[in-house]
């Protein structure tokens, strides 16, 4: 594919970078990234990936835009309230960059559909807000040998790590199982500072772009944590031995996908 003059200008700040160049920009245009969750994390990630010219972007989300989302989910506008988030996100992304194709999946991820959702994509972003979905996405990506970015945000804290098959621990290597009920509040109960989605979701987009163009080092084998109140970052080296992991280890005991019970949080 040859770039039009308009595309040269649109992507000029990428093409100028030694680590991206015209080749990297072409790789981006041919890449397929799936974003699961069009919320606090998925919104900024989707905006940056669309702007970057990632050729095909899928978005999975079962929810409709709610007024309480708008404090942090910057891809949606006030006029979008009531609209499926995937539709609202698609409209914003296509308005930013008409070069790209946005596929929408107006559904929750479940053990029934997750393998089918991820199968055509090169890189997956977990932008979900609950542990059952996070473990499901991890296990599915391990089983399908798909690289993915995990992230979580709550209050003034955020974290992320990147899984690439064969290149380090998966999410389950680190966290084993979902926490017991009420051990960890959902962000609906606990609150989250709006810009945290911007910080961590943007880093997820960064990892996806670096993976696609093959630049630098990914957060494989590390968990990066951010405390905004202290303005402290920690890049925690994870134990490299994955052999005993229940899903990505040498003798996995988890060989089928699990739908953990969704912990319903009582509103108000």
């Amino acid at each position: 594919m040859a770039f039009t003059n308009e595309q040269l200008e649109r992507y000029s700040r990428h093409i100028i970078l030694k680590e991206v160049g015209a080749k990297g920009q072409k790789k981006l245009s041919q890449a397929k990234v799936l974003i699961i969750g069009a919320g606090g994390l998925g919104a900024p990630a989707a905006l940056y990936l669309a702007a970057a010219g990632v050729g095909t972007i899928g978005i999975v989300d079962a929810d409709e835009v709610d007024l309480s989302n708008l404090q942090r989910q910057v891809i949606h506008a006030t006029a979008d309230i009531g609209k499926p988030k995937v539709q609202s996100a698609k409209e914003t992304m296509e308005a930013i960059n008409p070069d790209i194709t946005v596929n929408t999946y107006h559904t929750f991820v479940t053990s029934e559909n997750v393998m089918d959702l991820i199968k055509d994509y090169d890189f997956i972003l977990d932008g979900t807000d609950n542990f059952p979905a996070k473990f499901l996405i991890n296990d599915a990506c391990v089983m399908a040998k798909k690289p993915f970015s995990h992230a979580g945000i709550i209050r003034f804290k955020g974290q992320l790590m990147t899984y690439v098959p064969g290149q380090g621990p998966c999410y389950r290597c680190v966290f084993k199982n979902p926490p017991p009920k009420d051990a960890v509040p959902t962000c609906r109960q606990a609150g989250v500072i709006g810009a945290m989605g911007g910080v961590i979701g943007s880093l997820q987009a960064m990892e996806a772009v670096k993976y696609i163009v093959g630049a630098g080092d990914l957060l494989t084998g590390y968990l990066l944590t951010f405390d905004a109140l202290k303005m402290e970052w920690h890049k925690v080296k994870l134990p490299p031995d994955t052999s005993k992991c229940a899903v990505c280890g040498n003798h996995p005991t988890i060989t089928e996908l699990i739908d953990y019970e969704q912990i319903e949080c009582t509103e108000h």
Binding site: N5, L8, S12, R13, I15, I16, G21, A22, K23
Partner: peptide, 17 residues
Amino acid sequence: DVNCPITFVKTKVALDE
């Protein structure tokens, strides 16, 4: 036919080939 920074962008695209 182009201005900075597209001058360099166009050069880079040609070099990449």
